[in-house]
Structures are given as structure tokens and as C-alpha cells.
């Protein structure tokens, strides 16, 4: 039982990170109908800014985090303006491939800046743990869960209660109608990219917290894509649920698979996200909460 609870808590912590990345993905998709494969690249670059501000410039960690988020958001806006805007109206596939190309460039630049060593983030949690009865929970995991709840909560409030949030929701429903109502759709796209880049930075910081930022976090970030797909590409609750499902599935696989399903081989946890995605899509082709596409000629 302790083992199970332990795995569940770990699963929630990784799941929260995937949820943040998937959320950025869904926000971009909902507002501009662009599939962004660039989330992992944005995440690596964002994590590097935080590393740079907190260890090289030796600023306070929270200040560094804030600066990192702002800088990433600016990069997100620049990318949207320079590369995605010319593609408005082009087939969704071309735009998706474009973001793959962009992701390659961002990832290489990010890794080049980080270098071969593992870079510490200078975060306040380190590798300390909190003992709760039999459970050993790292402070980093607790911080991840708590911060994700705060971030996601404030984002949802932003969409629900602010004027610009309303504009974003209107754009998500119908771009042309939104334009006709005087909503600055171009600005909505830019803000969507800024939010996604900011979320990616936060996710990168929590992935790298404690152990440090290295090239390995990029591979993990790609697994946020199945999370977004499982929840449904155009559903914000779906992104959160999908992220948690992937996080829990990975955590349970790490804990139990070698015992019960050993024939699947070592490190099956790296592939389990995709297996879960296959199964979900077989049953529900548009994800758990995704809207069914209305097709017409």
C-alpha cells in the first residue's frame, strides 16, 4: 500500500509537469489551430534562461524564474510573429511540420547554451525530502504539485473572468466571427504563444529542479504530446487529465512492471505513454474530452 501511494504521489508530480506542457500545446491549438511540436524546444530554452539568471547572474531563484518566464514569453511572441503568421491559412500539416523544424533549431541552440554538463537551477528545494508516515516525498515534487495547481487555477480564472480571456475563448470558437466582433485575433495568437512558452518554462524548471537541467529533459518533454492527445487536442481539462494519466501510468510502470510484466523489457516506462495513447485513440478517436470533428465537403 505504501508503495502504491508513493507511486501515486510521484505520478502526480510528473503528471503535473506533463499537464503544464500539454496545456500550452492545447492553448495554442485552440486559439490558432496550430499544432505546436515546439513545446519541448521552448522548454529547454526556458529552463536555460532560468539557469542563466540564477547561477550565472546569481539572482534570487524566484526573480530568475520570473525573468525566465518573461523572456520565454517574448521568444514565443517573436516566433509567432515571424514564423507562424506567414503560415495563416496554409494546411495544418505544413504548419505542424514547420514547428517540428523550429523545434530542432530551438533544441540544438538550447543544448548548445546549456553545454554538456548538468546545470543546477539554484532552486530552493534541492534533493530534500519530507517524511509523512511511511511515505517519503521530495520537496520538489510537493512544490511541483502545489505550483501547478496555482498556475493552472490562475490561467483558468484568466480565461473565465478577464476581458482578454473572453476574447481568447471567442477566437477559439470561431476566428472569423471573432474578427467581425472587433477582437484582435492576431494579438490572441501572440498571447497564446506567450502563455505556452511561459508554461513550458515552468515545466522545464520543475523537470530540472533538484537533479539539474541536462539534455535528458528534452526527451521527457515530448511525452507531453500523448498527454494532450489523450485528453483531446482542444480541451483544457483534457490536457490536465491527460497529463496526470501519463504521469501516473509512467510512475506505476516504473514501480510494478519489472515485477508483473517483465517481458516488456527494461525502461518500458519510456514507451508506456504511447501505448496508453494507442489504447485511448482506439476507443475514442478524438481523445477523452476532445470535440468530435464535424466533417463536411
Amino acid at each position: 500500500m505504501t508503495e502504491f501511494l508513493q507511486a501515486t504521489i510521484n505520478g502526480f508530480a510528473t503528471g503535473a509537469i506533463y499537464a503544464l506542457l500539454a496545456l500550452g500545446f492545447v492553448i495554442i491549438y485552440k486559439s490558432s489551430e496550430v499544432l505546436s511540436f515546439a513545446q519541448s524546444g521552448l522548454m529547454i530554452l526556458g529552463a536555460f534562461w532560468v539557469v542563466y539568471f540564477s547561477t550565472v547572474l546569481e539572482l534570487n531563484f524566484w526573480v530568475a524564474l520570473l525573468l525566465g518566464i518573461i523572456l520565454s514569453a517574448l521568444i514565443g511572441v517573436v516566433i509567432e510573429r515571424s514564423m507562424l503568421r506567414p503560415m495563416v491559412g496554409k494546411p495544418a500539416f505544413s504548419v505542424a511540420i514547420l514547428t517540428i523544424g523550429l523545434n530542432i533549431a530551438l533544441t540544438v541552440i538550447g543544448f548548445d547554451l546549456i553545454g554538456v554538463e548538468i546545470r543546477s537551477l539554484g532552486d530552493p528545494w534541492g534533493i530534500q525530502v519530507v517524511q509523512m508516515g511511511d511515505l517519503v516525498v521530495s520537496r520538489k515534487d510537493l512544490a511541483t504539485i502545489v505550483s501547478s495547481v496555482i498556475v493552472v487555477g490562475s490561467l483558468l480564472a484568466f480565461f473565465r473572468y478577464t476581458r482578454f480571456g473572453l476574447a481568447m475563448r471567442a477566437t477559439a470558437i470561431d476566428q472569423e466571427t471573432a474578427l467581425a466582433q472587433g477582437i484582435p485575433v492576431a494579438r490572441v495568437f501572440a498571447v497564446a504563444w506567450a502563455i505556452a512558452a511561459g508554461l513550458a518554462t515552468i515545466a522545464g524548471v520543475f523537470l530540472g529542479a533538484g537533479t539539474g537541467v541536462s539534455a535528458a529533459i528534452g526527451v521527457r518533454a515530448i511525452r507531453a504530446l500523448p498527454a494532450a492527445v489523450i485528453g483531446g487536442l482542444d480541451s483544457i481539462p483534457g490536457a490536465i487529465v491527460g497529463g496526470l494519466i501519463i504521469g501516473l501510468a509512467e510512475s506505476y510502470t516504473v514501480t510494478y512492471q519489472s515485477e508483473y510484466l517483465a517481458f516488456l523489457g527494461q525502461n518500458f516506462s519510456t514507451a508506456v505513454a504511447y501505448v496508453v495513447m494507442f489504447l485511448v485513440l482506439l476507443v475514442r478517436p478524438y481523445g477523452i474530452f476532445g470535440t468530435r470533428e464535424v466533417v463536411r465537403v
Binding site: S94, G101, I104, A105
Partner: peptide, 13 residues
């Protein structure tokens, strides 16, 4: 690698 990524972007645009 960067060129490769950017080439995709440039050709698509």
C-alpha cells in the same frame, strides 16, 4: 542540425 530545422521552415514559408 539548425540549418536542417530552418531549411524546413524556410521551404514551407
Amino acid at each position: 542540425q539548425i540549418l536542417f530545422g530552418l531549411l524546413i521552415v524556410v521551404f514551407l514559408i
